Computed example of a mutant assay.
Amino acid sequence: MIVTTIDLYEGTIGHSYKYNSQYYLKFKTETIETSAYQYESGRATTVDIKTVIRLQGDNDTPVVEESEMVKKYAYDTQNKLASTLITTPTSSVLSTFKNGVIASTITKNTDGKVIMDVQYDDNGKAKTQKSSNYLYEYTYDTRGNMLSVKFTQDGKPNYLQEFTYDDHVNPETHIPRIFKGIPESVETVRTSNGVNNMTSEKSTSYVGGPTYDQKFIYAYRADGLPESWAPLPDGSGYTMNTTFRYKCQ
């Protein structure tokens, strides 16, 4: 499986892109992730993942970054996914599953020290994510949309994010995520989360950081699927618009 993602940044004099302590008016990132799967009895057992990132600012010489990792799947006696183990030159990530649903993810460095611990609810949604000095706590509605993210650092509240949604289907849920022989969802080009479409994002800072309440507006097709969406102007000077194209079946 080969997934290619290209990000293009078009800046202005007052809004440029920073990379490696330099500023660029135009910046391009091309990421190519190649996953080679190995199977036994029709089930994926190992996947070798190679990532090549090509970065270029303005007319500078492109910078190429490469990395590799290996992911192994283990199954229980009922042939349900029991665990996955990702290894890289600098870390390991062990995920455990209950009844085929992800339950926890533990990341360790090469010395065996836990550097991240993520716990999930019965639906496979992240409940908490913690490291040595920070903690993220997540809540969801009955449909599976994320309602809030609370960030605590050094035992003190840092910020709170809150979200609202419409009643229309998020079109990105139609992008295939289940593939033959692979026991977990595979995210390819999906960029947003939630069963429905986010209509607002509010951030409250407890330490003097930025506080905002961003609204999003949608144009819908006759069948209820979004045709486009954009944030309401907030005075920052940034503009963004997303349009959707659908393939008839």
Results as ranks from 00 to 15, higher is better:
86 I>A: 06
94 L>N: 09
53 I>L: 06
19 Y>W: 14
112 G>M: 07
75 Y>H: 03
101 V>F: 07
101 V>Y: 00
92 S>E: 13
134 Y>H: 04
65 E>L: 11
103 A>R: 05
77 T>N: 15
97 F>E: 03
70 V>R: 05
53 I>V: 09
95 S>Q: 05
46 T>V: 14
29 T>P: 04
24 Y>A: 11
142 T>N: 08
102 I>R: 01
82 A>Y: 01
89 P>E: 11
87 T>P: 01
94 L>F: 08
144 G>M: 08
24 Y>W: 08
79 N>H: 06
100 G>L: 03
84 T>W: 07
82 A>W: 05
83 S>C: 03
66 E>H: 04
51 T>C: 13
78 Q>D: 13
32 I>C: 05
72 K>E: 04
28 K>Q: 12
110 T>E: 15
123 N>P: 01
85 L>S: 01
89 P>S: 11
34 T>E: 09
27 F>C: 06
122 D>V: 12
111 D>Y: 13
60 D>A: 07
80 K>G: 04
130 K>D: 01
96 T>R: 01
25 L>K: 11
108 K>Y: 05
33 E>N: 12
52 V>I: 15
80 K>D: 07
53 I>K: 07
76 D>T: 01
29 T>K: 09
80 K>R: 14
37 Y>P: 08
83 S>R: 00
100 G>E: 04
67 S>A: 13
130 K>H: 07
93 V>I: 15
37 Y>Q: 11
127 K>W: 02
113 K>L: 12
40 E>A: 14
33 E>P: 02
136 Y>I: 06
65 E>Y: 04
134 Y>A: 13
44 A>W: 02
101 V>I: 12
21 S>C: 02
115 I>Y: 00
127 K>Y: 08
116 M>N: 15
80 K>S: 12
139 T>H: 01
